[in-house]
Simulated assay, not measured.
Amino acid sequence: MSGTASGVWIAASGDRDIVRADAIVMLRLDETGRLTAQLRDDAKVSVSLLEGSSGSHPPDDFHRQLIRAVAELADSSGAHLVRARHEGGVWHWISEPL
């Protein structure tokens, strides 16, 4: 995701932390539904964007959907926040202006 506009931010698990999209170099979606992002730094810090659970798991391509959403927002003006939502049994990414 390197090279995306710095105006796109992603809410981490629980909305307590926000990660700049262009700081992410790798996304990993594991079998429990946990989505982690490795940040671009020497310490190889990882941030949990979505906690895994025994309940409803996001789709297998949920990390790719995030990349698509960030790429689309990178072409728009202004800063945006992207966050995961589970509504009506469906996982999706929503965005809002900051």
Rank of each mutant, 00 (worst) to 15 (best):
E96A: 15
G3N: 06
D15E: 07
A37C: 01
A37R: 05
V19R: 12
D17E: 15
D22C: 07
A5H: 00
M1Y: 07
G78W: 01
M26I: 02
S6R: 12
A71L: 11
S2R: 14
V82N: 06
F62E: 03
D41P: 00
V47P: 03
S53I: 07
A12I: 04
S76K: 15
R28K: 14
H63K: 04
I24T: 04
G78I: 08
G55F: 07
R40E: 10
S46L: 05
V47D: 04
P97S: 15
S13V: 09
S48F: 02
P59H: 05
H57T: 02
T4W: 04
A5P: 00
S77A: 08
M1I: 04
I18H: 14
A37E: 01
R28D: 13
E96R: 15
T36E: 14
G52R: 11
L39A: 07
S77G: 14
I10M: 02
L73H: 12
R40A: 12
S13H: 14
L66M: 11
L50Y: 01
V8T: 03
G14H: 00
H63C: 10
S76M: 14
K44H: 06
D15P: 00
L50S: 05
H86P: 07
A71I: 10
V70P: 01
E87K: 10
R64P: 04
A37V: 02
A23R: 08
Q38D: 08
G52Y: 01
E31V: 11
G33H: 01
S48T: 07
L81P: 03
L39H: 01
V25G: 10
L98D: 10
W93K: 07
L73V: 10
V45C: 13
V82W: 12
E72Q: 07
I24W: 04
A71V: 06
R64F: 06
M26S: 14
L73I: 09
P58I: 04
W91K: 10
L66N: 14
G89C: 11
E96D: 15
Q38E: 13
A74S: 15
P58Q: 12
A5G: 11
